[in-house]
């Protein structure tokens, strides 16, 4: 998928573990792990809002668009 999830990078910058984030935003570890590994097919605005609120960041810091096979813009 051309959308890259940089959750691990933002977590590292904030010196926060996945477990801490999971406990504070009320999303299961399993779901956060799916998100972190880039296996998620979609993300709800409410989830994104909770994560951004807790990590004090913008959605663009967590999600990034990288064209596949060198195509795109």
């Amino acid at each position: 998928m051309a959308i890259i999830v940089n959750l691990d990078v933002v977590l590292a910058q904030r010196k926060m573990s996945l477990t801490e984030l999971s406990n504070s935003v009320g999303i299961t570890m399993a779901n956060l792990s799916i998100l972190k590994k880039g296996k998620a097919k979609a993300i709800r605005f409410s989830t994104l809002e909770s994560i951004c609120e807790k990590l004090n960041c913008q959605p663009g810091e967590i999600l990034e668009y990288k064209p596949e096979n060198g195509g795109g813009e």
Binding site: I27, N31, L32, I34, A40, K41, A42, R44
Partner: peptide
């Protein structure tokens, strides 16, 4: 169902 399960 798979899509729903993989929607976080």
């Amino acid at each position: 169902q798979e899509d729903n399960q993989l929607t976080i």
